[in-house]
């Protein structure tokens, strides 16, 4: 697979489109010695150092390049989650779709399993064959039966580990804000770890409601091994049930929380009487 990707990247970098334009570069991972880091390959580069592992949110790099170099046209070697990240970022003007070519490859079945990934391949699939979706996260799968007390107990022992390193935010391709609510002292008390009310994590979860594309980068990054994607998977589930919105699925779909009920109606309950809007199941 990696050889095929390298070959296609080489071809793409040398191709000209119908207007005679070439890609200015291809964003991918590069191995230098023992380390792997994002890199912009240009035509003529040694592509034997191009890597696809470990997983890294390359769209963050694309976004920065697009913003700093307003004319640059890039390609990117992307997984399914990278492409979904692109959808939510492009929707919010962080990536210019006109200046990006996605060269997608499919994740392996093992990776899909590891990530509990429901869609382990991009729509712009160029290399590889789609693997079967991974299973649901087992904690998420049994969540409906957990009582409030059980949930509380579960998260208490998770959140207590949090050192507020902001790694989850920093790695997230969808956390592209200039200023962060989690650093605003109005919302998250500075100087306290694991405050009794988990505002830090809840604020991030709310901000992810229409953005989280389930790439699992936050959870992989977390030094405290907090199962953050359980929180976000449940948020994604509630979002889809209430507003029919699946982040990353459709570039044309407007962010549902920002538009009116006419544009994106509630799928559950009656907005005229909020008491009729049902909660997700809670174990008794």
């Amino acid at each position: 697979m990696i050889d095929e990707i390298r070959k296609i990247v080489a071809e793409r970098l040398n191709e000209t489109d119908d207007k005679g334009a070439r890609l200015d570069g291809m964003v991918a991972l590069r191995r230098t010695g023992p380390a792997v880091a994002p890199h912009v390959f240009v035509a003529g580069d040694d592509l034997s150092t191009l890597e696809i592992n470990p997983r890294y949110p390359l769209m963050t790099v694309v976004s920065r390049l697009h913003k700093r170099l307003p004319d640059i046209r890039l390609g990117v070697v992307a997984r399914g989650c990278d492409e979904r990240a692109y959808v939510e970022m492009a929707k919010r003007n962080q990536i210019d779709p006109e200046r990006l070519v996605i060269l997608g490859f499919a994740c392996t079945a093992e990776e899909a399993l590891e990530c509990y990934c429901a869609e382990p391949f991009p729509k712009n699939l160029v290399v590889g064959t789609p693997a079967a979706p991974g299973p649901q996260n087992p904690i998420v799968a049994k969540y409906d039966t957990m009582t409030l007390a059980e949930r509380r107990a579960f998260w208490k022992q998770q959140f207590v580990k949090c050192i507020k390193c902001y790694g989850c935010r920093n790695i997230c391709p969808e956390c592209f804000c200039e200023a962060c609510a989690m650093e605003d002292k109005a919302w998250v008390e500075p100087g306290f770890l694991a405050p009794p009310f988990p505002a830090f994590h809840l604020i991030r979860a709310m901000h992810m409601a229409s953005r989280c594309i389930a790439c699992r980068q936050c959870e992989h990054t977390c030094p405290a091994h907090i199962p953050l994607t359980v929180l976000y998977d449940l948020m994604r589930r509630d979002m889809e049930a209430l507003l029919g919105y699946v982040p990353g699925a459709d570039l044309a779909a407007l962010p549902p929380l920002s538009v009116t009920l006419e544009q994106t109606p509630l799928l559950l309950g009656d907005a005229h009487d909020p008491a009729t809007i049902p909660l997700a199941p809670i174990g008794r």
């Binding site: 919010r92 003007n93 962080q94 592209f176 804000c177 200039e178 200023a179 407007l254 962010p255 920002s258 538009v259």
Partner: peptide
Amino acid sequence: VNRDDCVGCGDCLLV
């Protein structure tokens, strides 16, 4: 708007 903090996502335009 504090333009330094704005990332240009456009959610406010929709709202």
